[in-house]
């Protein structure tokens, strides 16, 4: 296995998925951040979600 670069060496740039308050705090601190518009996938339909996941695994 090759030596991987340490995650501690990367400049922190954040994709925030969820509480928007965290995005506001990071922006305030000058950290590059993108807030995702997250909603329950497949409209929260469990069966449809399982189907999507199986497609994702195949793809």
């Amino acid at each position: 296995m090759t030596e991987k670069s340490s995650p501690l060496d990367r400049q922190v740039q954040v994709i925030n998925i969820g509480l928007e308050r965290f995005t506001a705090d990071l922006r305030e601190a000058g950290v590059p951040v993108v807030q995702m518009d997250w909603r329950p996938p497949a409209g929260g339909d469990k069966k449809l979600l399982e189907l999507l996941d199986s497609l994702h695994e195949r793809g």
Binding site: P7, R10, Q11, V12, Q13, V14, I15, N16, I17, G18, L19, F22, P32, V33, V34, M36, W38
Partner: peptide, 15 residues
């Protein structure tokens, strides 16, 4: 999201 922030290093997840 990654396309918008190509240098993204971390996902903060609070869903």
């Amino acid at each position: 999201a990654i396309g918008f922030l190509p240098g993204a290093s971390l996902a903060a997840i609070s869903i």
